[in-house]
Design a protein around this nucleic acid. Structure first.
Lengths: 247, 247
DNA sequence: ATAATAAACGTATAAAATACGTTTATTATA
DNA sequence: TATAATAAACGTATTTTATACGTTTATTAT
């Protein structure tokens, strides 16, 4: 007995055998933390669980990963099922693997962080599919560790929006400067000086001004812009970062 | 047949059943991408695989996750086995889950990014345990997708070191300013002006100067410093970031 | 004593961030 | 059809930070 324990404790022994046959298989799921920006408000896509455990409680959208798909494929499948959209910004957040996280079974979940442009059409799509857009400012309790996943995803969103043009994934392809500022004010929960925000943004020389104006929120109307992804991708490799404020 | 296909394609149908019983279990492993900074050179800890497939080839250090441990626990176990150290900076990198990544079996791997202070003692420890410190500048080929894991980890290291004091995890607790500059020059593969580097670093007011000097690389000797983690953690929440250069 | 050298200090200039005043385009309504 | 109202767009002065580069200092080997 003591002999075996010693063997187990011996580092070299452990390293030498990565034994496929004796290894234990585990359930693996993906859970999607999907944000949308709806009229100045950051929202999360969630639905009410239809199976036990936690039937009827708010939950993120997820699925088990099958033998025949990668985590990314599984998430894309789930996202397509719920939104009808194929091109969505998505990246892995992190895995959640504590042994007791799911009372249904030992199950590792890979959190997937996604951002959606909330058009009227997209909203209808998701809502007909049984999911709802919940405002982040008044989020109900979520099942299991989904609350933690959302907290982690929000931190990711803020950290990335700080240095990368990731926030644009939440806006339409054509957007106005005041729209972008409203997004940043919602994300970082603080006001920016509109004159300096505009100046800094334009100084990056990454926006392409269009002829059209958006008159939905003012008589004068605000010019629509597109982001110059081609230029951005070129400069990114040289250390450029899309940072709109210092602190 | 067509009816069933439709059912499978129906989003609501899919969402409703997260069926634990019918879900497929998968092998899950952790692989550790461990960096050390050795006399001005960034190094990776790797070992030669002792089991098939890829016997004798360079590999990261990893293990399957068992039913009774989280991914973090598994990585800590592996790190302890190979280094004898319990307190190591470690964070999840990302998962690697493509279905054909491991010819031995369908296996999802969670990459774990770790940083070690390379003292003489630590080097001996790891090397007696059958692992080797390979310089990043002349890395041999690694098995499976381990090459990609290392590339991703290096990018993570650079991105984090850019805005967080993560690089200090590669230096001893007491370090000199020229040491830190050498680390940054190695990480970012460029030279910094020593006068401006020092000025910027000290302006952050995050270092505690000690009485001792390190005379190992000059006659005059350089003062040793400690990082003020308490102060840093306080200011971090207010948007402070540990950034030593702009571009 | 002196030379050699990395470490530490200093200063001038350019660039960027911040604070805040002004003008413009448009529409509703007096 | 003039005028008021308002968000959008533009401008400027001041402070802070980044960059470039010269000088002094502490120590040891010769």
């Amino acid at each position: 007995m003591h002999y075996y324990l010693n063997l187990m404790d011996n580092p070299l022994h452990q390293l030498e055998q990565k034994n496929y046959a004796s290894a234990q298989k585990i359930l693996v799921a993906v859970d999607c933390i999907i944000f949308g920006f709806d009229d100045g408000v950051l929202k999360l896509l969630a639905f009410k669980r239809k199976v036990a455990p936690f039937r009827g409680n708010w939950s993120l959208i997820g699925s088990f990963i099958t033998e025949n798909e990668s985590a990314e494929e599984a998430s894309k499948r789930v996202l397509y099922e719920i939104t009808g959209l194929k091109k969505i910004f998505m990246e892995e957040l992190k895995t959640y693997s504590s042994i007791a996280r799911d009372p249904g079974a030992r199950c590792i979940s890979i959190g997937q962080f996604a951002l959606i442009t909330l058009t009227k059409k997209n909203k209808e799509l998701t809502e007909t599919h049984g999911a709802e857009w919940l405002p982040m400012s008044a989020l109900p309790e979520l099942v299991m560790d989904h609350q933690q996943m959302v907290a982690d995803a929000l931190e990711r969103l803020r950290n990335k929006a700080r240095f990368y043009p990731i926030g644009l994934e939440l806006l339409p392809k054509k957007f106005t400067i005041p729209q972008l500022q409203a997004l940043y004010e919602e994300l970082f929960q603080k006001l920016f000086d509109n004159r300096n925000f505009r100046k800094k943004l334009l100084s990056l020389k990454m926006l392409i001004q269009l002829k059209e104006k958006d008159k939905s929120s003012s008589k004068k109307g605000a010019y629509r812009y597109e982001f110059d992804y081609a230029k951005y991708n070129t400069l990114k490799n040289e250390g450029f970062n899309f940072s709109l404020f210092k602190s």
